[in-house]
Design a protein around this nucleic acid. Structure first.
Lengths: 149, 149
DNA sequence: CCACGTCGGTTCCTTGAAGGAACCGACCCT
DNA sequence: AGGGTCGGTTCCTTCAAGGAACCGACGTGG
């Protein structure tokens, strides 16, 4: 990408994509939502070039999506934790996931369900004040298509 | 991007991003959802290089997200219509939009509301069988932040 | 009949981001 | 002293995006 920006676009989708629209970025956030925290965990799980991963992590910290927190001294080591802003991306990611489930995979490699009664969960449009699930009420578990690729 | 694929990822998010994750692609689909159909409309509205637009449109037609339909003969001219598969991306796009509204813009440039009673609409996680709005029940109108950029 | 405009592209060159492999520095263990 | 771990950085190559010019089929006006 020559520029990461979409100039002249008066649109929150364009603004969002300027921040998280580059290659790898949403997959890093997906992994963070699933609990990954350390440089090597991301690198091994994604197979991403170390340079690109370092660039993306720095950018995401600058944007307030990840937080760089020390987990040991001598040698100083840091891990990356999602902020509220980062966790808020879960709706868009679940939306992408279910589109991929419906149109790109035969069987879903992963399922979203309620923690309490294990009922399937989807992302959908609803009236603003109607009740919906918070991220902490939902869990993600391997689905029927897991491992088929 | 050297490759458009994310090899070794057993994940529908990765598969979805292999199809619609490249620069410009989601903005083209956003425009299509708002009613744009012709090459020049997309090109002017996005300010995208014509070559890249031609590449993306061809790709999206190949993937069954857009349909190339003739709207005149002599000279043969085509426009691009969203398929069901393409329209299904609206949940992910609204999810991205509201994240951008919440974290990247001061005021939303665009609002989603119900066509019937003009109540605000959000994307959210809900139990699978609970009722939610279909795309045709929702409209998108300029919001308070419209034109501020 | 010739010039101009419209639409939907294609061609060509330049620039810069991604891939990949090697290297590095601080520390620990044996 | 040698090797391993972790979190990077450096360097080179390759390929996609940006941008501007060009093109072909057709309609329009003088």
């Amino acid at each position: 990408m020559l520029k990461r920006t979409y100039e002249g676009q008066d649109c929150s989708i364009a603004h969002a994509l300027e921040v998280v629209g580059e290659r790898w970025t949403l997959l890093i956030i997906r992994d963070a939502l699933l609990g990954l925290r350390r440089f090597d965990e991301f690198q091994r799980n994604l197979g991403i070039a170390r340079k690109v991963l370092a660039d993306r992590l720095r950018w995401l910290v600058d944007e307030g999506i990840l937080e760089r927190v020390p987990y040991q001294e001598r040698p100083q080591r840091y891990e990356y934790h999602l902020t509220r802003k980062g966790r808020d991306l879960h709706v868009a990611l679940v939306g992408l996931r279910q589109w991929g489930d419906a149109h790109c995979s035969e069987k879903p490699p992963m399922l979203a369900r309620t923690k309490s009664d294990k009922k399937p969960v989807i992302a959908a449009l609803v009236p603003k004040r109607s009740d919906h699930l918070r991220l902490e009420e939902v869990e993600f578990v391997p689905g029927p298509g897991h491992g088929s690729r």
